[in-house]
Design a protein around this nucleic acid. Structure first.
Lengths: 224, 224
DNA sequence: CACGGTTTTGGATCGGCGATCCAAACGTGT
DNA sequence: ACACGTTTGGATCGCCGATCCAAAACCGTG
C-alpha cells in the first residue's frame, strides 16, 4: 500500500571486520561494556544488523577480536631484546596501561582465557622469565603467577578507575571520600584498613603496581 | 472476559533478602552468571517480580549481596590466630576454593571492588602481613599485590574450570587437547608455550597457586 | 472483633537487547 | 547484457531488567 519506502543505497566504502572492531573499541572505551550493542554499532557505522553479522559471528566473537587487537598492539610495541628484567617491567607496565585505557580488556581476558590474547601474553612473559635464568622446574609456576598478578592488578585498577570520574579533580575528591570512610571504620574492627586510609590519598596506582612486580621478581630470584 | 482469574494466595513462609540471596547463589552456581535472571528467580521461589524487587534494589545489588555472603563465609571460617605465614596460605587457599566453587564471585569482585567483600579481604590479608613483620612502608604495596594475585589467579582458574566439563574425565581430555594444540604451535614462534604444553597435562591448579603464593611471600621476605 | 492504614506479594507491561532471517542492492565473470 | 553469488539493510522474534499497580495479608487501635 504505497509503502514503497526506498531502502537506503548500499555503502561505497567496504565494511570489514577490522572496521567493525575499531568501532566496537571506540564504543567500549567511551561508554564501557554496556555501551557495546549492535544497535549502537549500526548507528555508528550507519549500516544494519545483517551487515555486521556477516563479518562477526556474535557479540562475544566481537569482544574477543577487539581484545586480541589491543593486546597484540601492546606486545608488539614493547622492546623485548632489552635486559630481561627491564623487558618484564616494560611488558607489565604496557599491559597495565593498556587495561587502564581499555578497562573492558581485563574483564574479557579473564572471561575467555583460552583465546589468542592470553596465549601471546604467556609466551612473552614466559620467554623473558626464561632469559632471566629462572630454573626449568619453577618456570611455569613463576610465569603463571606473574601473568595473573599483572592481569589481576591491572583489572582491579581499571575497575577502580571506572568508578572515578575521569577528571583528576574528581579523582582526588573520590579518594578523599573513600579514605574518610575507611578511616571512620574504627581501628579495633579494621586496624589495617584504618591505617591504609592515610596512604590511600597519596598513593600512585602505577607505582604500587611496579612495586608489586618487584616483589614478585625478588621472590622469583630466590628460586634460582 | 469473565477473566476473574483468582490470583494465587499469598505465600506463608516469609520472603527475605537472605532467602533470595540463597536462591540466587544456587542459580549462579549451577548455570553461571547467565542463569541469574529475575524470571528464573520467580520460578524457583514461586513468586513474582514485585516480591523480589521489594527486598532487592536491582540485579547488581543482588549479585553484590551474594558475593559478600560467600566471602564472609570464607573469611570467618579461616583460623587467623595461627602462625601468620600459615594464616596467609589458609586465607589464600580458602579464597581460591571459594571462587573455584562459585566462579561468578571472582568476576563480581573485580567488577565492583568498592563493596564490603573486598574490604574484608584487604583487612584480613593486611593484618596477617603486618603480623608477619612486613615493614610499614612496604605493607600496603605488599597487601595490594598479594590480594590481587590471589583474586587474579583464582579468577583465571575459575574461568578455565568453567570451560571444562565438571567431570574429571572430560577435564583431562580437554587438557590433552589444549596441550596438543599448544605443542603444535611450533617451537620457533612459541618456544615457551610449546614447552609449557608438556607441563600442562600433569599440573595441578591448586599446587601451582600455592607455589605462586610462596614466590610472593619469598619476595616479601626480602623487604624486611 | 471490626476496620483502615501499612507492608508484602504477584503479575501485566515497557523499552531495549542479541540473534535470526530475508529481500534488495551491488559486483563480477562470461 | 545478463545471471549468479556476495554484501548489505532492516523487520522481526523471544528474552531480559525494570517499573508499576492492585490484591492480599498483617497489625495497631478502639
Amino acid at each position: 500500500m504505497a509503502k514503497k519506502t526506498r531502502r537506503a543505497p548500499r555503502r561505497t566504502d567496504g565494511l570489514s571486520k577490522e572496521v567493525i572492531v575499531t568501532a566496537a573499541t571506540g564504543l567500549l572505551d567511551t561508554g564501557g561494556e554496556a555501551a557495546l550493542t549492535f544497535r549502537a554499532l549500526t548507528t555508528r557505522l550507519s549500516t544494519g544488523y545483517g551487515a555486521i553479522y556477516h563479518h562477526v559471528a556474535n557479540k562475544s566473537d566481537l569482544l574477543a577480536a577487539a581484545t586480541d587487537d589491543v593486546i597484540a598492539r601492546v606486545l608488539t610495541g614493547v622492546v623485548v631484546d632489552a635486559e630481561p628484567r627491564d623487558g618484564l617491567r616494560a611488558v607489565a607496565l604496557g599491559l597495565f596501561d593498556a587495561i587502564d585505557a581499555h578497562p573492558w580488556v581485563g574483564a574479557q581476558l579473564s572471561r575467555e582465557p583460552w583465546r589468542p590474547a592470553l596465549l601471546e601474553i604467556y609466551e612473552t612473559i614466559g620467554r623473558l622469565l626464561d632469559a632471566l635464568g629462572v630454573p626449568e622446574r619453577a618456570l611455569f609456576d613463576a610465569a603463571g603467577a606473574l601473568v595473573n598478578y599483572v592481569l589481576g592488578v591491572a583489572g582491579q585498577n581499571a575497575a577502580n578507575a571506572r568508578v572515578l570520574a575521569y577528571d583528576e579533580a574528581d579523582r582526588s575528591a573520590f579518594l578523599a571520600t573513600v579514605a574518610e570512610q575507611w578511616s571512620r571504620l574504627g581501628p579495633d574492627r579494621y586496624p589495617f584498613v584504618h591505617r591504609a586510609a592515610a596512604r590511600l590519598r597519596e598513593h600512585d596506582d602505577r607505582e604500587q603496581f611496579l612495586a608489586g612486580v618487584d616483589i614478585f621478581l625478588a621472590g622469583i630470584a630466590t628460586l634460582r
